[in-house]
Amino acid sequence: MATTNTEEAFTSSDEWVRVSPKLVTARRLVLGMSMLPIIAVVVVLFIVPIPEFIPIIAAVASAVFFIWAWWLIGRRVRSYAYCERDDDLLVSSGILFRRLVIVPYGRMQLVDVTAGPIDRALGVTTVQLHTAAATTDASIPGLEPTIAADLRDRLAHRGETRSAGL
């Protein structure tokens, strides 16, 4: 994993860490699998006796969607970055809807580490931070399992030393 300087430098001294490119593979795999039923429908449209332009339009539309989603996944994954500062964690993400979340370590209630079956096969893990606010939306997908475990332990440790009441 490399530090980044291309994503806007929020504050120049901070070290931003990008997530693993394996997440792109994992998400594209999921995309491919969710395309299967769509392909099946298009195939059926070609077989049944209806005017030919309908299945052609359907095929073109799903192909365009697939290419767009494929490309978007690459950009979205590249947009994920996090930065551990002395007192808080920054998470930034998003292409169309961009966001930056600042979570103070003292406010963390718990840290989740999750990985689905595809994620596990490819070796990517999600770390999610929860605070007492339901609206805090700080999850970092696509971390290598060891890095995720280290991050979780570091966050938990910092949370303990800086914890505050509500």
């Binding site: 979340v101 007492a132 805090t136």
Partner: peptide, 29 residues
Amino acid sequence: HARTQSVRWTQGPWERALDLATVHVDTTP
């Protein structure tokens, strides 16, 4: 200030076109 749980900066596509952004300060539900 002490009741801040987290701070979010968000920017939707329309906001981005106008160089606008929104700041949310999260508290308990």
